[in-house]
Amino acid sequence: SDYEVNVNGIHHRFHNISEELIKFIEEALRRGEDLREIIKKVRELLG
């Protein structure tokens, strides 16, 4: 049904976003950045 496609589409989009965010955060932590600064950047990215 349309509803299922829609829900799956939304889930898929969020899954991709969270994968990208996790990579972004892991790389920043590897560079020794402060978690609070990383979260601030993530918030800015998400608008």
Rank of each mutant, 00 (worst) to 15 (best):
S1C: 06
I22V: 07
N8W: 00
I22M: 06
I17P: 03
G32E: 10
F24T: 06
H15P: 11
I10K: 08
L35M: 07
L29C: 01
I39G: 02
N8A: 06
R31E: 06
L29S: 03
L35C: 03
I39F: 09
E27V: 12
D34Y: 12
I10R: 09
F24N: 05
D2Q: 03
K40S: 09
K40A: 13
E4P: 02
S1T: 14
R43D: 15
H11T: 13
I25P: 00
I10S: 07
G47R: 10
I17G: 01
I38D: 00
L29K: 04
R43E: 13
K41I: 09
I38P: 01
H15S: 12
H12M: 06
N6A: 06
E44R: 13
I10N: 09
K40N: 12
N8I: 02
G47H: 11
E37R: 11
V42A: 04
N16Q: 05
V42G: 01
N8E: 06
N6F: 04
R13Y: 14
N16E: 03
L35A: 09
D2H: 07
S1F: 14
R43A: 13
R31T: 08
H12Q: 04
F14Y: 02
V5C: 02
N6E: 12
D2M: 04
L46M: 14
G9I: 02
E44W: 15
K23H: 12
E4G: 02
K23W: 11
E33I: 12
E19R: 10
L46N: 10
V5H: 01
L21Q: 09
I17Q: 01
H15V: 09
K23Y: 13
V5Q: 00
H15D: 11
E4C: 06
E44V: 14
E4I: 07
V7E: 04
A28S: 11
G9L: 02
E20F: 14
F14A: 00
E26F: 11
E33S: 11
R31M: 08
L46D: 08
H11W: 14
D34G: 13
H11S: 13
I17C: 02
E19Q: 13
L35Q: 02
S1R: 15
E20Q: 09
G47E: 11
I10D: 10
L46P: 05
N16Y: 06
G32S: 11
K41W: 15
E26S: 11
I25K: 00
E4Q: 05
E20P: 08
K40Y: 15
D2G: 04
N16C: 04
E33Q: 11
R31K: 10
S1W: 13
I25S: 00
E44T: 13
K41Q: 14
G47F: 12
V5W: 02
I17K: 00
H15I: 09
Y3H: 03
H12N: 02
Y3R: 01
L46Y: 07
G9V: 01
L29V: 11
N6S: 09
R36S: 11
I38K: 01
F24Y: 14
G47T: 11
F24R: 05
K41G: 06
N6M: 06
I22Y: 05
G9Q: 02
E19H: 13
K41T: 08
E27K: 11
V42S: 02
R30K: 09
E26N: 12
V42I: 07
A28H: 08
R31W: 07
R30V: 11
K41L: 13
N6I: 15
E19S: 09
I39K: 03
I10G: 05
G32C: 03
D34N: 07
K41N: 10
H12K: 02
A28V: 05
S18V: 03
E19I: 10
E26I: 15
G47W: 12
L45I: 10
I38S: 01
R13G: 09
E44S: 11
N6T: 11
E20W: 15
E44D: 09
R36D: 10
L35S: 04
E44N: 09
F24S: 05
V42N: 02
D2R: 01
L29T: 04
E44I: 12
Y3T: 01
E37W: 15
G9T: 02
Y3N: 01
H12R: 02
D34S: 07
R13K: 15
R13A: 15
G32D: 10
H15F: 10
H11M: 13
Y3A: 00
Y3Q: 01
S18M: 03
Y3E: 00
L21P: 00
E26R: 15
I17M: 07
H11D: 05
E33K: 10
E19W: 15
K23Q: 12
V7L: 06
V5A: 03
I39P: 00
L21F: 05
K41H: 10
Y3C: 02
S18Q: 05
V7F: 06
N16I: 02
L21A: 10
R31L: 11
I17E: 01
L21V: 12
R43P: 04
G32L: 05
R31I: 07
I39L: 09
L21M: 12
I39Q: 04
S1I: 15
L45D: 05
S1N: 09
L29E: 03
L35F: 05
R36L: 09
N16H: 06
N8G: 12
E20N: 09
I22G: 03
G32Q: 11
V5F: 05
I25L: 04
V42F: 06
E33V: 13
L45T: 07
V5T: 02
S1A: 09
N8M: 03
R13Q: 13
V42W: 05
K23V: 11
Y3K: 01
E4H: 07
A28F: 14
K41E: 06
D34A: 11
I38V: 12
S1H: 14
R30Q: 09
L45W: 11
N6G: 02
F24W: 12
L45G: 06
E27I: 13
D34C: 06
E4W: 03
I39H: 03
V7T: 04
N6Y: 06
D2F: 06
L21W: 05
L21G: 08
V42Y: 05
E27C: 12
L46E: 08
E20S: 11
D34T: 10
G47S: 12
E19C: 04
I38M: 04
R36K: 10
I22H: 03
N16R: 05
V5G: 00
F14T: 00
L29H: 03
I17W: 01
A28C: 05
R30E: 11
K41P: 00
E33P: 04
H15Q: 13
R31F: 09
N16T: 03
I38E: 00
E33W: 15
N6R: 10
H15A: 08
H15C: 04
I25R: 00
I17N: 00
H15G: 08
G32Y: 06
N16P: 01
G32T: 07
